[in-house]
Simulated assay, not measured.
Amino acid sequence: MVDWDAGQYLKFEDERTRPSLDLLKRVPLDAPASCVDLGCGPGNSTELIARRYPAAQVVGLDSSPDMLAKAKAHLPGLRFEEVDVARWETSERFDLIFANAVLQWLPGHSALLRRLVSLLKDGGCLAVQMPNNLNEPSHRLMAKVAQDGPWAEKLAAAAAARERLGSFEDYYAWLRQAGCSVDLWQTTYVHPLDGAASIVEWFKSTGLKPYIDPLTPEERSGFLHRYEAAIADAYPVQPDGKVLLRFPRLFFVAQRGSN
């Protein structure tokens, strides 16, 4: 995929920050000394961590130069580094590894979680939130439009860009095997948005990227036109003119060495 667009992402900043806040509230640490925000994006989640733990050393990691530029401009007192999270290696050990809406892009969650837990200090926490919406109309329709259009061959692999999440039982077992206690839950957020076009705008910075990034400008316009028409059918307009975007998200907080 091409670089992430921080400006597009931040069009829905309040809605995107809420899961980070909900996740952070469940972290059972009083005074961690070292925290890392994996896939920090424009820094909205990093700011929450730094605000809750003002004495901690907090670092934000992301692979997107555009996202990091926004984060550094907004939070000049914090440390940010360009890192491919999939290949991240470090000799440091952390009290908190926070990963909001990033691990769904990475494969092999059993091994990945084992590796991340190994980077925690004893008693440290791995706090994770991942969108669990591949079965929602928003994402089923992305795949359908991709398969049905003249771009079908070009987009044959697009649906595989997102990792299909495991079950609750999978994550519980993987984290227990890694030596952690596990707090696991799912929340379905319901976002009132201003029509089908707003749903398209929401996903242009995230879920739609594997579908639209490979296309020419003309193809991209055609794809988004078909997708918006399909979205309009799937999300009926409410009496106040809004449409309701359902957005399930899977959460867990795993604490190393705690039973």
Rank of each mutant, 00 (worst) to 15 (best):
A86P: 07
R52K: 13
V58P: 00
C40P: 04
K70Y: 10
E81H: 13
T46R: 01
Q104F: 01
E89T: 13
S63K: 14
D62S: 14
K70P: 03
A69M: 10
R93L: 08
F98T: 01
L48N: 00
A101E: 02
W105N: 06
S91R: 13
I97Y: 00
D37H: 11
E47R: 15
R93G: 03
C40W: 05
D37Q: 11
F94E: 02
G77E: 11
P42R: 09
P54E: 04
V58I: 08
F94Y: 10
S34I: 02
E92W: 11
A56P: 00
S34M: 07
N44L: 11
S64K: 08
L68D: 04
R79P: 09
V36H: 01
V83C: 05
S34T: 12
L103C: 08
S34P: 06
R93I: 04
F98V: 01
L78D: 08
D95A: 02
A73S: 09
A99G: 04
R79F: 12
Q57S: 15
E47I: 07
L75W: 07
W105G: 08
H74Q: 15
D95T: 06
V85E: 02
V36K: 04
R93Q: 05
L38D: 03
E92V: 12
F98S: 01
L96E: 03
P65S: 12
S63Q: 15
E47L: 12
A69C: 11
D84M: 11
R52L: 04
E82R: 15
V102N: 03
V36I: 10
R87Y: 12
T46Y: 05
S63T: 11
L75P: 04
M67Q: 03
P107M: 12
V58F: 02
E89N: 14
N100L: 01
G108A: 14
R79C: 14
V58K: 03
V83S: 03
A33G: 14
L103E: 02
D62L: 15
L61A: 11
G108T: 10
V58W: 00
G108N: 15
W88A: 04
E47A: 11
Y53C: 08
L61P: 02
G60M: 09
F98R: 00
V85M: 00
E92K: 13
G77A: 14
L78H: 09
D84W: 08
R93A: 01
G108Y: 11
C40Q: 03
I49A: 09
V36C: 06
W88S: 07
A101D: 05
A55T: 12
L75Q: 08
A101R: 05
V102A: 06
A99P: 03
K70Q: 12
P65I: 11
G77P: 06
N100C: 07
L106Y: 02
D95S: 01
R87F: 12
G39Y: 00
R87A: 15
L38S: 06
I49F: 04
G39N: 01
W105Q: 02
L78N: 10
E89Q: 15
S63V: 14
D84G: 07
D62Y: 15
R51D: 09
L103D: 03
